Amino acid sequence: MTSDSLEKMLLSKSGAIKEFPFDEVTAVYKVMNKMFALVGTKESYLNINLKCLPDDALGYRDIYECVIPGYHMNKKHWNTVIINGEMKDEVLIEMINDSYDLVVNNLTKKEKQALLNLV
């Protein structure tokens, strides 16, 4: 997956916005002001931090060498995926969808209604 296709996919999520709160090379993708993805391009490779259920986070790490505990994140709930071609795009997209859904499911009723109104 390329940087452009990754960004397009992340921003296609309902209510998704992109910000640079930390520096010029670390993009944070949020829904209703809650982070669901963090994309780093500072290294020589593209990487993305995604929220996961704890058991799923461990499972992905067991299956893929390109998945490591979330860099600068809660290691129980976040994974970093190094996008190097090891993981099929379909699996990465599933992880992105799960991360987004986990964040949306934890929004307040008011925030969920506001998100629905954006559609």
Results as ranks from 00 to 15, higher is better:
Thr80Leu: 04
Leu58Gly: 06
Met9Gln: 07
Glu86Trp: 11
Ile63Lys: 15
Asn74Ile: 09
Leu53Tyr: 14
Ser12Trp: 13
Thr80Arg: 11
Leu38Asn: 00
Ala57Met: 04
Gly15Arg: 03
Trp78Pro: 08
Gly85Gln: 04
His72Pro: 02
Ile83Gly: 00
Ala114Met: 11
Thr41Asn: 05
Thr80Ala: 04
Ile63Gly: 07
Cys52Lys: 00
Pro54Ala: 08
His72Tyr: 15
Val28His: 03
Thr80Asp: 03
Leu38Pro: 00
Gly15His: 12
Met35Ile: 15
Glu90Lys: 01
Lys51Glu: 04
Val104His: 07
Asn97Glu: 13
Glu43Phe: 11
Gly15Ala: 11
Leu50Met: 09
Ile48Gln: 04
Leu6Glu: 03
Met35Tyr: 10
Pro69Cys: 09
Tyr71Leu: 05
Glu19Leu: 09
Asp55Glu: 14
Asp89Pro: 00
Ile17Lys: 15
Lys88Asn: 06
Leu92Lys: 02
Asp98Ser: 02
Leu116Val: 14
Ser12Gly: 09
Glu94Ala: 12
Pro54Phe: 14
Val31Trp: 03
Leu107Cys: 04
Lys42Ala: 07
Val67Ser: 01
Asn105Pro: 00
Asp4Trp: 13
Lys112Cys: 10
Ile68Leu: 13
Lys76Ser: 10
Lys75Trp: 15
Ile82Leu: 12
Asn74Ala: 07
Ile93Arg: 01
Lys51Met: 04
Asp23His: 11
Asn97Gly: 02
Asp101Arg: 15
Lys109Ala: 05
Ala114Val: 12
Ala16Asn: 13
Ser3Pro: 01
Thr2Gln: 11
Ala57Gln: 03
Ile83Asp: 00
Trp78His: 09
Tyr45Trp: 05
Glu90Cys: 02
Val25Phe: 11
Met32Leu: 03
Asn106Asp: 11
Lys76Tyr: 11
Met35Thr: 06
Val119Glu: 14
Gly15Thr: 06
Glu90Ala: 02
Val25Ser: 12
Lys112Val: 10
Gln113Arg: 12
Val31Pro: 00
Ile68His: 11
Arg61Trp: 15
Glu65Tyr: 15
Lys112Gln: 12
Leu38Thr: 00
Tyr71Pro: 00
Asn74Asp: 09
Asp98Thr: 03
Val119Ser: 07
Asp89Gly: 01
Glu90Thr: 02
Glu111Ile: 02
Asn84Thr: 10
Asn106His: 14
Leu58Pro: 00
Glu19Gln: 12
Glu94Val: 03
Ala114Asp: 15
Lys8Leu: 12
Lys88His: 09
Val28Lys: 01
Met9Glu: 08
Met35Gln: 08
Leu10Phe: 05
Lys76Met: 12
Ser44Asn: 13
Lys30Glu: 08
Asp4Gly: 06
Tyr64Cys: 01
Trp78Asn: 05
Ile68Glu: 10
Lys8His: 15
Met32Asp: 07
